[in-house]
Design a protein around this nucleic acid. Structure first.
Lengths: 236, 236
DNA sequence: GTCTATAGTGCGATAGAC
DNA sequence: GTCTATCGCACTATAGAC
């Protein structure tokens, strides 16, 4: 698996995201024609992430958003109930979409080394394909209401449990020999997050997501390696 | 070196920070008596980090800060020129203090393994001792003006260059055998940052900074290890 | 479905009493 | 040195013309 292929196969274009957003927030959106609504939601989605990721969601005014999206204040408010709901709309839709993709992606791999490699690779590829959303989601999580904030935390902890679970399974099968699966899972998560939080840095150094994935996987398997080794990744 | 000892020896109490803050922003602070100014600055510093780290600096109003610090709006503005300057005051003072501590801390260690271990350990201990500031600094960096933003980025990159430099030196001396010092330095930085960005998580799991430091150092030296090994840490 | 114009709110900051 | 009271402004959100 390479990033180029992942991106072709995963249905996570901006249009896919906004179709999902419309469907799950139909009542709050006044525009009736689906085609028009999705087209404008794409502009709003795009502009929100662009402006917010530069100066923060709180600092972005609705006038900023109007200017950046090319829609008037009035038209903007025909596509969303409030600024607060816009945040919730983007967060919940992204969370639903990403968790679906992740679940489907590495369930089929059997051997622990390959499974761990596939999990890391998929997380990195997904965060690369949806980098603006991942960055936004990380930085703006604390501006959500209590209920939404809880969901965001859960979603993050689930990722870590996936890594820890694979490592524990590998220990049991003798493929790994890792004394602290939880702490190892935590630092894997930290390395994955660094990819989308500091993307400008890696871009400047011309490091591709494929190369970063190779590096993280090699380092991780090196740490976990048991007597039988665990250097092999899942095929093709 | 343990965290308990580090904290005793480093002069980075809240009072130390606020004394430095007063000295470097004397003109902007109307209060004349140094003792009074520092005492109130401590309450302001504390309240700003507490409220901002929960809801974000932009979302914190000066009325929030007045309530949380126990000072009236008027008194507040006798200790700072504007909300924007409060942000700059906290950031620049913290940056000056932390970079001074870091420079002093691991210069004396000679062997590459011990030097890398000392650098990682010191970064973790410092970020633990000043966790609210590190978190604040990371999350609010993008609300700074262009000039200040540049300084914050520089300060972060310097850290990474320290790690990379030690690894390269170790390679040259044959103690390490690491093909990619820059990428290794980047993921060390990511693991160190995770400590202060996700401290609630580690606190819940009852993982101490000493244990986290041991884990990160062991993992890192394991990856870098050359023929001669590099598992030894700097003494005492 | 999209626009312009504006109502109403809550902000950062200050003046002046004590 | 600290307080209360208030100014002017920029924001979110909406009403109503087209």
């Amino acid at each position: 698996m390479s990033f180029a292929r992942f991106k072709r196969e995963a249905a996570i274009s901006r249009q896919d995201i906004c179709r999902e957003m419309l469907a799950s927030h139909r009542a709050a959106i006044k525009i009736q024609k689906e085609e028009v609504a999705i087209r404008n939601l794409e502009r709003i989605y795009d502009a929100t992430l662009r402006v917010s990721n530069q100066k923060g969601f709180q600092a972005m005014t609705m006038r900023d958003l109007s200017r950046a999206s090319g829609l008037s204040m009035g038209a903007l408010y025909d596509h969303l109930a409030s600024k607060e709901e816009l945040l919730e709309m983007i967060q919940s839709t992204g969370r639903r979409l990403t968790s679906r993709i992740l679940k489907e992606s590495y369930a089929s791999v059997e051997d622990p080394g390959g499974k761990l490699a596939a999990a890391i690779r998929t997380h990195l590829y997904l965060s690369e394909a949806m980098q603006p959303w991942f960055f936004f989601s990380y930085m703006e999580a604390r501006h959500l209401g209590d209920k939404e904030k809880q969901l965001a935390k859960q979603s993050e902890q689930r990722t870590e449990r996936v890594f820890a679970g694979i490592i524990r399974q590998g220990n049991k099968q003798g493929a790994f020999n890792e004394a602290d699966p939880n702490l190892t899972a935590a630092v894997i998560k930290a390395m994955v997050q660094d990819w989308y939080l500091k993307r400008w840095k890696y871009a400047k150094r011309r490091i591709s997501v494929d190369r970063y994935a190779d590096f993280v996987i090699k380092a991780t398997l090196g740490c976990c390696a048991g007597i039988n080794g665990a250097g092999k990744e899942a095929g093709a």
